[in-house]
């Protein structure tokens, strides 16, 4: 057996947990649980970033780990919970495609992502290079979730989860993007969620529901 260092094993473990959480989000029917899973994913992301930071000793990674904890594990889930409460979203989320089918598509996506990332991760100097495939898979699964769900809020969680996947790719494969860029990305995500919050209220006022199948009128016929 290869003697992979402990920290690389830890990163692999966290990456695997993030992937698992992505799948559970895909299977989750309830909005509240979905947000909790998202928060958990953010927290796992924080842990993996922290492990990378401790191991490489790069100070900007500590910052981005802290940013992840504050933003993705606490602030964003809190905002989302508030929105759900204020908008009184019904707790049941109806998926468009049934869950086992979604899962099977998910598995296929994971395989594709792993295959796409394989030649690239072999070139990486970073030790936890296998995570690139997982990150891509998380992005793809989030994408799938956005396609198959009807509630606006679920789509947003999907969008944020996609961002988690991207962040995982940035930290584990390249030990983090330059600080300016990371700050910019975090700012964009935060502003995006705030704008969406405003947006939810507008949608609810217009449609009396956050179910986006009301919003299928614009078509080319």
């Amino acid at each position: 057996m290869n003697a992979t260092p402990l920290f690389a094993q830890l990163i692999n473990l966290f990456a695997a947990v993030i992937l698992l959480l992505s799948f559970s989000m895909l299977a989750q029917r309830r909005v509240i649980q979905l947000i909790n899973l998202f928060a958990l994913q953010g927290f796992t992301l924080f842990l993996s970033t922290l492990v990378v930071a401790v191991n490489t000793g790069q100070s900007h990674l500590y910052w981005s780990a802290g940013l992840t904890l504050a933003l993705k594990a606490m602030l964003l889930p809190w905002i989302l919970h508030r929105l759900v409460r204020q908008l009184q979203v019904k707790s049941e989320v109806e998926p468009l495609v049934n869950i086992p089918t979604t899962m099977l598509i998910g598995i296929v996506l994971v395989m594709i992502s792993f295959n796409v990332a394989l030649p690239i991760s072999q070139l990486s100097s970073a030790i936890a290079r296998g995570t690139l495939g997982i990150a891509l898979a998380v992005v793809m699964l989030a994408f799938l979730m956005m396609i198959t769900r009807r509630k606006a809020i679920t789509q947003v969680v999907g969008f944020l989860s996609m961002e988690n996947g991207l962040f995982l790719a940035a930290t584990s494969a390249t030990y983090g993007m330059p600080m300016v860029v990371e700050l910019g990305i975090a700012l964009d995500v935060l502003v995006g969620v705030i704008i969406l919050g405003v947006f939810f209220f507008q949608i609810r006022d217009q449609f009396d529901s956050l179910d986006i199948h009301h919003m299928e009128r614009l078509k080319d016929n």
Partner: peptide
């Protein structure tokens, strides 16, 4: 309603697209 739908589509599609660009 139509403009909200358009804006939602705009946000989600461009959000997804721009996430690919970030990758």
């Amino acid at each position: 309603p139509a403009s909200l739908e358009a804006a939602w589509k705009y946000f989600i599609l461009c959000g997804v697209g721009i996430a690919q660009a970030l990758f």
